[in-house]
Each structure stands twice: as C-alpha cells, then as structure tokens.
Design a protein around this nucleic acid. Sequence first.
DNA 1: TTGAAAGCGCTAACAT
DNA 2: ATGTTAGCGCTTTCAA
Lengths: 346, 346
Amino acid sequence: MKRKITIHDVAKKAELSVSTVSLIMNNKPNVNEETRRKVLEIIRQLGYHPLRSARGLASQSSGNIGFILTEDHFSQAEPFYTKIFLGTEFEARNHNFYILLTTVGWTLKDQSQVPRFLLEHNVDGVIIAGKIGSSWVEYIQEQNLPLILIDYELARHRVSTIGMDNRTGINLVVEHFRTGGHSKIGFIGGDIRHPSIAERFASYRDTLASAGMPINSRWISVGEANTSLDDGYEAAKRIFSLGGERPTAIACANDAMALGCMKFLKEAGIAIPGDVAVSGFDNIEAGLHVEPRLTTVNVHREEMGGIAVRRLVEMIKDHSSVITKTLTPVELIVRDSCGVKESVSD
Amino acid sequence: MKRKITIHDVAKKAELSVSTVSLIMNNKPNVNEETRRKVLEIIRQLGYHPLRSARGLASQSSGNIGFILTEDHFSQAEPFYTKIFLGTEFEARNHNFYILLTTVGWTLKDQSQVPRFLLEHNVDGVIIAGKIGSSWVEYIQEQNLPLILIDYELARHRVSTIGMDNRTGINLVVEHFRTGGHSKIGFIGGDIRHPSIAERFASYRDTLASAGMPINSRWISVGEANTSLDDGYEAAKRIFSLGGERPTAIACANDAMALGCMKFLKEAGIAIPGDVAVSGFDNIEAGLHVEPRLTTVNVHREEMGGIAVRRLVEMIKDHSSVITKTLTPVELIVRDSCGVKESVSD
DNA sequence: TTGAAAGCGCTAACAT
DNA sequence: ATGTTAGCGCTTTCAA
C-alpha cells in the first residue's frame, strides 16, 4: 500500500524545509527563483497535491463558497436560478473554489435552520440568489462572511449585489411597441414587491410618460401574489374582462407571465399579435417553443453567477468590504409575439 | 472577539475528556447514556459545531461527494442532467454530504485534467452522469473511491449504475400507437451508441416483432451523430424524403429529437397528428409548450440523482463494494402529438 | 465507560 | 531566503 505523498516527502527530496515548500505551494514571495523551480519540478515528479482538509484546518479556510436559495426558488419549474447557480459553479473553477448549494426557508427562525456549511465553517463566503428574508442577510453578516446578493437587494442593508438592467430592458420593449405603432400598451407585473419587478414597472411608466403616451390603470395588473404563469393568466383575464378600450400590446414583467397571458388570449380567441402584441422578460427556453414565439428581453443568467463569484473571491482574498452594485446588461430579442419587425436602422 | 467554541470547551464544561465528547459527536457506542445526554445538552447550550476541516483531517474524510459531467452534457440547453444533479444535491442534505460539481473532457488524457477534488482528496465518493470515456471510470476506481454511474453503463467494467426503464418506456409508446390503430410506426434514434438509446431502439423492434407488425428500415433513422433537436430534424427529413410508403407514427428516442422531427413535419406541411403521430422520451419542459403538445415518456430525473446518492452513501459507510444496477420506472404521458386518446380501461 | 496522548498534513510565526 | 516549531480542532488507538 503506497502511502499518500505529503509535503514532507517533497521537502525531503528537495533537501529543504516544509515551510519553504509551503511558501511555494501558496505562491508566496521571498523565495529564490531557482529553489521555486526545483521544488515545483519535484512536486510534479512526485505528483504531490496538498490535502484540502489539512490546508483548511491550518489556514482556517475551506476553499468553498456557499450558495443559498429559498426552497420555492429552487423547486421552480423554470430554471432561472438554476442557471445562475451553474454560472457560479463554472466560474468557481477558475478560482479554485467549489460551490456548496443549499436551500432555506424564507426567514431564519431558529438555529436548527442554519445550513450546515455555515455551522461547520465550511465556506469562505456566501452568495444568495433571489428574494429572501432579511434575517438571513443579517445572520451571515454577523458571521463576518463576505456576502453577495444576486437579483435582489435590501434597501436597509449594506450588501453587495449583482442585478440586471431592468429599466433598460422594459424601456426597449415599450419603445419597440411604440415605434411599431402601438399607443395603448398595458403591463402585467405580478408580485410588485420584488425589486426587479418594481423596477420594470417603474420603467414602463417612465417610458410611457416621457413619450407622452397615455397610462391607463385598467391596462395594468400588478397585484398578483407571485410571478408565475398562472398569475399572468389571471392578470390577462382581469384586464380583458373589463369593458372599455383595450390595450393593443402587453408588456409582461417576465416570460412565465407572458406565457400565461398568451394562454388566456388564445382561449379568449384574441389573436397574437394581430389583436394584441405580447412581450416577456428573461428569455426562458419555453418562449422559443410557444406559438407565436415570444418576444422578450435576454438576461445573462450564467454570467450573473460568474460575476458574483468573481466579486466574492475578491472580497475573500482582499478582506475588502467595499459595497458594490453591479448591473448586467440586457437586450431585446424580437420574435413573433409582438408583431413588429425589427427596424433596420436604430 | 469571542473565540470559536471547540470540543475542548465542551469537554471542560462537562468535566470529561475530549475523546468522550468525540465519541458522542459521532454516535459511537460504549458511552453511558446519562453522560451522553449531559454532553448533548452542553453542546446545545454552547452551540458547539465541529469544524469540518478538522474532522476531515483527523478522519480522512471530506463529507463531500463529487459529481462529474462531461462538458457537452453540462452545456446542453435542455437541463436533463442538471435535473439529476439537483436531485443529488437535495438528497445529499439528508445524509450530511455536500456535492462538488465539475465538468471534464470526454476522456482522461493527462494528469492535469483530473478534477481538483480528486487530487486534494476532497470527496468520499463520485457520481458520474451520462456517457463518458471509460478512462475516467478506471481512474476513479484505481483511487478506491466508491463510484456510481447514472444513465450510462460500461459493459466491461464492474460499476454500480442507476438507469431508467427504457424498454418499458418505448414499449408503452409503441403499444399506445398500435392500439390507437397505427401499423406503420417509425423510429428516430440519433446516436445509437448510447446504451439508453440502444435499449429504446431494441425495445421498439421487440415490441413490433412480438405484435407481428412490420419493421421497415426506411422508417428508421439511427445513424445520427448525436441526439439533439437538429438530429431529429435531419432524421425526419431523411425518412420523409424517401419514396414509397410512409410511416403514420414516429417514436423518437428523446424529446429533443421529437421536437426536431415536429419542426420538419410542420415545415413540410405534414399534419401532426393528422398525417403523422409523434412521440418523445424524457418529458422535458419544452414538450408542454409546442403545438401540439408532445406525447412522451416521463423520467424521474431528480429521483435518479437521489437514488444515486443513497447508494453511494451506503457504499461509503459500509465499505461495501457490491455492484448494483437500479432501474427507475417510467410512465407514458399522453398529450396531443400522438392523436390517440387515452383509453379509459387498460 | 472514560482518559491521555499521538497524530492527521498543513500554515504561519518566529528565528536564523 | 530558508528552517524550526507550535499549533489548527478533531479522531483514534491504547491504557486505565
């Protein structure tokens, strides 16, 4: 049984002390270049690799990043947050970190709910994706752990965030409708308490206002409990059950609700985009498969995860606690549900 | 600055030695019940939690499970393997393990390709999902690491696997077509070298044969390089470009290819299911959004991941190296693309 | 049933 | 620039 190769084996073969080898393993300065080269070569020959748990114990670091998602976000059919998670996994490799994933309840009620990776000091920093109770943010900050929020923010907390350019996204949509000849544009928002949704709604209003277009509250539905397909369906039903003038276009705050909206319109015999144009936000897979294909706003989900990891690794390494807010860009994707051809010029 | 609570703090407060506390932490026998209770209570009071890396170093175990995916499986648009991965994440929590994910190339070419978690002994076992080069299996087995394959197997290697009941799945599809009045049933297989696809193809032939139905090689396409939507499209084009009698139903070996097949048929002006019925396999999200909605076979992806973790944890804890092959059940999901209503009786 | 003590393999002060 | 050494916090023989 061949024993595992340790740092001592390397030191012995190099006729040096373990501390020198350790310095080299960790790319520390103050090492003779020749020595470094020699040791590196011996390490290669021996196939030496330091044991993660030994490094962890000695250096009080785990090499892991915790990723926290609320249970309902995790179990969503549409893998919006899953994509973000995979983006973190991918980027983490470039920094020699691994991601530990866990789901939690909405708020931190008692100690038994705390993820094991926090209790066992098995992560060096934490990423939280999506809307979550502030108690979690507070708990993690009390542990002095670097923290990043993705697609969420808490006004009353100093915490770095990665978001997306919601305002520009909806602005592009509404402008696209407007230049395509629409003047009666509605909005389906779902749960307006989510910061991203609120921004999208605000941008809808601002864009209409600055274009001098009418805002009709009967074309707007933002009071749903959530932002699911069913919420979109119900919202559309609400808007189109009202008498009076109807909108000719509906900007939905996400693709799921846009799909629900389309479902209702189809059932009601309202033609898309003939009678009513529809747009979404997020660019989920399903939007490609519906008939007509959904016009939407693309969000770079994997990249958001990647950026979060890069920022977090910075925070871990530099011990810097500068608060940053990063916005990732979005772009309009014109497909068939909006009935407006993309103009050649801008 | 309040120091971290260690096992010594617990021992001191309990007026016992650390070894006794350790025994209790690890649920070992030969401890006085009263002592155990007392210590447990003190642990609770102190809010003590052992440091993962310290346990790891002392016990030569990491508390992690490695999950390996080939790069192309990872980056697939349709999250088939992602679902399996999330299933492992979920189940791992029940066993106090975390999952470390990594992607690798098709074959293990040189040492620098080996995932860091293997080199650093940072996993206690490994799960591989999907088709992969045998060199990886060999490497991991050389390390004496417990290993499970999901949705793949290697005839020449002794390794435990988790699969799905491919034969029953296709059997249900073909029988459904047959009892619905179809007698000319084709098959689109894509990359027949994948064991799951091969089983589905075999089941297609067997079912037709035992029903005494004709097998027409011109209704079959199994020579594609892959199993993507495009492969399905090309396969359908091939089949329907041939002269002579055409099939009235096509069983596709997965949903992606079924979608591609439908795309071709639509473009060719062939009605679904009026002229040709289509079925898939896997039950991916997109099948719900196409028009007509896709009849398919449901596969319990998350559960496959969960079962893999349970088996692997057994292997880790018992040091048992019994080889098992587990099949998860599947079920037919009748929707609109097959034009056959589900019969009330069986 | 409990305790003493020797590591596990590495990092990081401190010394040279 | 390199070496010595004391831990990091836990598990695990072995002894009592």
